[in-house]
C-alpha cells in the first residue's frame, strides 16, 4: 500500500526532471520543476523527515519568485 505511493514519487521525480531538460520556454521549465518537487516531498515524507518536508515546500515558491523576478527583465523569455 505504501509501495504504490513510492512508485508515484519515483515517476514524478524522473518525469519532471526529464521534461525540464527537454522544454524550450523558461516558464515551462518552472512548471516541470514543480512536478519534480512533488516527487521530492513525497520521498521526504516517506522516510519520516516531516520538518525537512515543511521547509522544502515553503522555500520552493521563494526560489521560483526570485527566478521570475530575473525573467521579468527579458523580452524573449515568454516565447
Amino acid at each position: 500500500m505504501t509501495d504504490l505511493i513510492l512508485i508515484l514519487a519515483i515517476f514524478l521525480a524522473l518525469f519532471g526532471g526529464i521534461a525540464a531538460l527537454l522544454m524550450r520556454s523558461a516558464f515551462d521549465k518552472l512548471i516541470c520543476l514543480g512536478i519534480l518537487t512533488a516527487g521530492v516531498v513525497l520521498f521526504l515524507v516517506e522516510k519520516g523527515y516531516l520538518d525537512v518536508a515543511i521547509v522544502v515546500s515553503l522555500l520552493m515558491p521563494v526560489g521560483t519568485i526570485f527566478i521570475l523576478l530575473l525573467l521579468g527583465k527579458k523580452q524573449e523569455a515568454a516565447k
Binding site: 514543480g34 518536508a53 515553503l58 519568485i65
Partner: peptide, 14 residues
Amino acid sequence: IAYFIGSTLESNAI
C-alpha cells in the same frame, strides 16, 4: 498544508 500553499503561491506568481 505547507506543500499545498507553497505550490498555490508558485502558480499564482507564474
